[in-house]
Simulated scan of single mutants.
Amino acid sequence: MSEPRLIMFDMDGTLIDSGSIIAEHMASTFLSHGLEAPTREMSNSVIGLSLEVAMMNLAKCDAETGAAMAETYRGHYRAMLAEGERHEPLYAGAMEAVLRLKAHEASLLGIATGKGLYGVSRILALHGMTDHFVTLQTPDHNPSKPHPGMILRACEETGIHPGRTVMIGDTTFDIGLGRAAGAKTIGVTWGYHHRVALEEAGADMIVTNYDDLNETIDEVLG
């Protein structure tokens, strides 16, 4: 059997296409607090951070105001769920790639995301993916990316060394998280940060579609 390895996925912008929904709720939140609504590009630029940190960065506000805005955002999100009409779709090829990796005898899969644990669990259940991931790392019990805590906790939970771990994500925050933890990193181009930014952040490899992911993981982990 091959040496065990841990494959960590970001969620927003990597597994699921949630940019439009996030931008909509960001706009509603800012307007609720008497602030000018950010553009979609501005909102998408902070995806991946914990919600409180994202608000502080986007609104240029203090922690107390950021926390209040984060709670307003969660209220808008819960209202959307209550309507039951919208959800965040998987990117093309995501499910197939996850199933291929899960079938690999040495691979364990995990999530490292700025989304809260409730939202992660809901989305995994929605797409029938709950049983595919053995560790879920969120801001509920970790510092925001790019702090290495999410990867280090996942490694502790699974018993896999960071050097046998790869972080897959669409933002510089994901690449920073992986590098800070001593893991390998793969940037994906279909999300919310540009390829050049991912390269400049130090991504070990870049992929442009899910078809190439498994081979790229083999390459970076050896």
Rank of each mutant, 00 (worst) to 15 (best):
Q137S: 10
H87E: 11
T130Q: 14
R86H: 14
V207M: 05
L31K: 12
A68Y: 02
P4H: 04
R153L: 13
R74A: 13
A94C: 00
K184S: 07
G163H: 13
G222F: 09
A181C: 06
A54Y: 04
L136Y: 11
F173Y: 15
E215Q: 13
L152G: 14
D12N: 03
D12C: 04
A183M: 03
Y77Q: 14
M8N: 09
D10T: 03
T138C: 02
G119Q: 14
A82M: 10
V120S: 08
T65A: 15
G19E: 03
T113F: 05
L124Q: 03
A180N: 12
F9C: 02
D12S: 02
R100S: 08
H76R: 02
L51A: 05
E83S: 15
A103D: 13
Y192N: 00
Y210I: 00
H147S: 05
T130C: 03
V53N: 07
Y192H: 03
E96M: 00
M129D: 09
F30R: 00
M1S: 15
A82G: 06
V46G: 06
V196F: 10
K184V: 02
F9N: 01
G13P: 11
T172M: 12
M95A: 13
H76K: 08
N209K: 13
E41A: 13
R78N: 14
S28V: 09
I47E: 02
S28W: 10
G178W: 08
A112N: 12
E36T: 12
A92L: 09
E215W: 08
A67L: 14
Y73D: 04
E199W: 01
R179S: 08
R195A: 06
L51P: 04
D62E: 14
D204M: 00
N57Q: 13
M95C: 09
G114L: 02
V53G: 01
V134F: 06
C155E: 06
L124M: 11
L221P: 05
G159Y: 09
V220W: 05
I21Q: 06
S32W: 12
G182M: 06
A180H: 01
R40E: 11
G202R: 03
I16Y: 06
G182F: 06
A201Q: 04
G176V: 04
E156A: 15
S144N: 07
L31W: 01
T172N: 06
V98S: 04
I175V: 14
Q137H: 07
V53M: 12
H194C: 05
A23T: 01
T165Y: 06
A67N: 12
L126A: 11
E199H: 02
A183V: 00
K60T: 12
H194L: 07
G178K: 03
G176D: 11
